[in-house]
Computed example of a mutant assay.
Amino acid sequence: MKAALMYGPNDIRVEETEKPTCPRDGMILKIMSVGLCGSDIRNLTTDSRKGDYPFIYGHEIVGYVDETGPETTKYKLGQRLFLFPGTYCMECDACISGHSENCENEHVAKLAGTGGFAQYIAVSGEKIQKGGIYEIPEDVSFDAASLGEPLTSVFACLENVRVGYPDTLVIIGAGPIGDFMAQLAKIRGARKIIMIDINQTRLDMSEQFGVDVTINSAETDPIQEVLKLTEGKGADKVISATPVNATQAQAIHMVRKGGLVVFFGGVPKGSLTELDTNLIHYNNIWIKGHFGASYSQSKRAFQLAVSPSFPTEKFITHVLPLDEINKGIQLTKSGEAIKVVLHPWE
């Protein structure tokens, strides 16, 4: 089969490799569309595997059942499926406490985590048993269904922090995730959405997703602009959705007293963010880290992604063959693309 193999930082080669063997209790999914995620790009452009190469990334996976093992009974040939990469044991302390996104069972968590930049992927019987596989309606395209994965964490975040009317929400980072947040926040009833980024192209594109005001922080002090827009009070909620420590530090200066700041984007491992803790203390600012989603949230996010309520066609700006994965990376990094979807069979 054809696959995009990573041999090291920025060394991604599309070449022929061995098709996976179908597990006796599992299946082979023929991948029809796979989204290119910001975390994929971060992994593909750094030494993410610490020298353990080659490796196949890609986790926004949709396709149809191409082969089933003799002990497989739940799915049949030809079924169109979305493969949620999160898998939870539902037995550890984190799962039992309601935080299955932090499942402590590393083996279970890795059952369907990656391998999507290829024409086929093997799905184990254990993954089928644990769940997180959803059927795609016949009238929904594979491309649209692939957005179910990146939407999942956004859906969970906005639900967990109760974004809704009459919130004024600041989103720092006008990438695909920031745009998802803006659109979903509008659906949830947020009154005003302020988007901040250093890339004017991204800011301009974000306006179609319910953003009311954009701030180019390369040209204007974003903290002062947010305060002006909120009569000096600050926003109700501020979400830092970038991989940059500086935006986390800025976020606490943009939120109102008693407001909430969310650290959504992961920053470089080992890096530290300098925060004015007196400001946090005396202004009663709440800070929440967000990662992942529960099974319930992943299912409802997928249902939203394939529904008429969510304008998937506006988010997917580029559809490329898998052979052009490196082009997709550059389009995303430059800000020209919002969401790139790759087709392994073109």
Rank of each mutant, 00 (worst) to 15 (best):
K237P: 15
C103K: 03
V340L: 03
Q303Y: 15
T230M: 07
Q303I: 14
T214H: 10
L81Y: 11
V255N: 05
G131I: 04
V62G: 08
P308K: 02
N278Q: 13
E207S: 01
K327M: 07
A4W: 12
C95N: 01
N216P: 10
S294P: 01
L77I: 06
K186N: 07
G115I: 08
I316S: 01
Y165Q: 14
N284L: 10
T201V: 13
A109E: 13
P321A: 01
E15D: 11
E71L: 15
S307D: 10
E67W: 05
K50Y: 15
H59K: 05
Q79W: 14
K233H: 12
A122T: 07
P20M: 15
K19E: 15
T273M: 05
T242M: 02
I121V: 14
G98V: 08
F209H: 13
M181A: 13
S48Q: 01
E106Y: 03
I172Y: 10
D167C: 10
R191V: 13
K333I: 12
E18V: 13
S124P: 04
Q129P: 01
H107N: 08
T87H: 00
I252W: 04
K2C: 03
K327I: 14
D47H: 03
D236M: 06
D204G: 07
P85M: 00
P20T: 15
E336V: 11
G175C: 08
G116V: 03
E60G: 08
K30A: 00
L169S: 06
L36V: 07
A241Q: 14
H281M: 03
M181F: 09
K228L: 02
D52V: 04
E101T: 03
K269P: 02
L158H: 04
S48T: 03
G328Q: 12
M27Y: 12
H107E: 08
K228C: 02
E274I: 08
G328C: 04
